[in-house]
Design a protein around this nucleic acid. Structure first.
Lengths: 236, 236
DNA sequence: CCGACAGTTTGCGATAGCGCAAAACGGGAC
DNA sequence: GTCCCGTTTTGCGCTATCGCAAACTGTCGG
């Protein structure tokens, strides 16, 4: 098993407050793997045999209803963990994880978790922290879905993506992984048609530049304004 | 400070896997308090000075937007913790907690958390578990809001409340704390008007019996059917 | 260089649910 | 017993957004 370079991950919140030796010991239990673009890392409902830390690339976590509708739970950025079903006491993955770009991950067997936590209690504390943060974000999302209209929700979603995974260009901020209208719709509780209409509108106002699975915020501030107005007039 | 009877709380998931001595030591750090119906336990945005365990009563956690709209994050049932801002690394409460019935809580100072976690690591593990479960529930709620219509969402919400805090009556299952149309609207992302219309409809079909801040599910199974149909005809 | 296809755009009804307004109701306080 | 106030009910028009359908376009494979 290839040795993982500790220096690459030592600064991650997950490992906060750990000695190099502890970190080393934890990493020794992991293996790494590469998932090509558009491949599934795990499927909703499957046995949660592993948990993951994303090193490179981007991963989409999506939840599917019995009737086949999907929502995007979140996009995982490098340095974040995912597939932590066991931490919450679930035997099966509650969502599907797909690599949206060629991605590299560290993989631990779920079975190692109890031992690791016992040996390194701060692992549980750190994980609690991240899960708690996600819970808050979740609540914020519910609040938005309950109180804002679609255009504002899309604006917020894009701003969050830009903050999380934005690449600074001179023309604006580009979301640096492939994302479709459909994906955005599934993040905001609407349809790809509506998202398309909204982006078209923004494009003609010079707020964004968007193409096939690619979005550049040309005027982030303008979008912030859109996101924050509570209930105003329509678009041009 | 009144001594808390350990036997009352020993079985709670929060304290799973703890020795009586550990439990005792943890409880020694808590004080208890009583909040009358409709009083605030803490306000959104306030310094998170304490965290809580509900012993008796019911508490509503609600989040407010800058513009004043509210959503109900959850209803806390006896035995559950709330106000765990520190566990997720937040200095301020992200929501407001209101006692919807006369309630009794245990209160720990937030400052005690790091010490307790260090001394009793399973506290972190157990909390991680509950926070993780809440995260999942949150995702389920987002999924519902994205894919279902209002009537189904209300059906699901009531079924959940009934499961969590339902009192079995011969006429059906009563949600055993005061809850208004407005509250249900804020749980499901709709308006009190729409909730009222839906409940009126159900009442005339004999599915529920509802009054002022009081709801009885007379035909839980009928409501399950409503909740599960993916997209069908209207009501009578 | 060309075809095929996935992703996108756009038009055009249809409608679920909102928002406002007003009336009805029920329970408690005195 | 009566008054008052918070809650609930209901009517009615409005519109944001969906849903379907069709046309369009950029990309990739060959």
């Amino acid at each position: 098993m290839a040795k993982v370079d500790t220096s690459l991950v030592a600064h991650l919140p997950l490992f906060a407050g750990m000695t190099p030796e502890a970190l080393d010991e934890i990493l020794r239990e992991a293996r790494s793997a590469r998932y090509p673009k558009n491949s599934a890392i795990f499927e909703q409902g499957a046995d949660a045999q592993s948990f993951f830390l994303l090193l490179h690339g981007h991963v989409r976590a999506a939840k599917t209803t019995p009737t086949g509708e999907q929502i995007v739970v979140r996009y995982v950025a490098p340095g974040e963990t995912f597939g932590l079903a066991m931490a919450i006491g679930a035997a099966r993955y509650p969502a599907t994880a797909i690599a949206v770009d060629d991605s590299v991950v560290l993989i631990w067997p779920t079975s190692a978790w109890p031992r690791l936590v016992e040996r390194f209690p701060s692992l549980a504390a750190n994980t609690l922290q991240t899960v708690g943060t996600r819970l808050q974000e979740s609540h914020t999302r519910i609040l938005e879905m309950s109180t804002q209209q679609v255009e504002q929700r899309v604006a917020h979603a894009l701003l969050r993506l830009a903050k999380q995974s934005g690449k600074k260009l001179d023309r604006g901020i580009e979301i640096d992984f492939p994302i479709s209208r459909q994906d955005i719709a599934q993040m905001t509780g609407t349809t790809l048609h509506t998202v398309s209409r909204i982006l078209s509108g923004w494009e003609s106002q010079g707020l964004v530049e968007s193409g096939r699975q690619r979005i550049i915020l040309r005027d982030p501030h303008g979008i912030v304004v859109l996101a924050e107005r509570s209930a105003a007039s329509g678009s041009a």
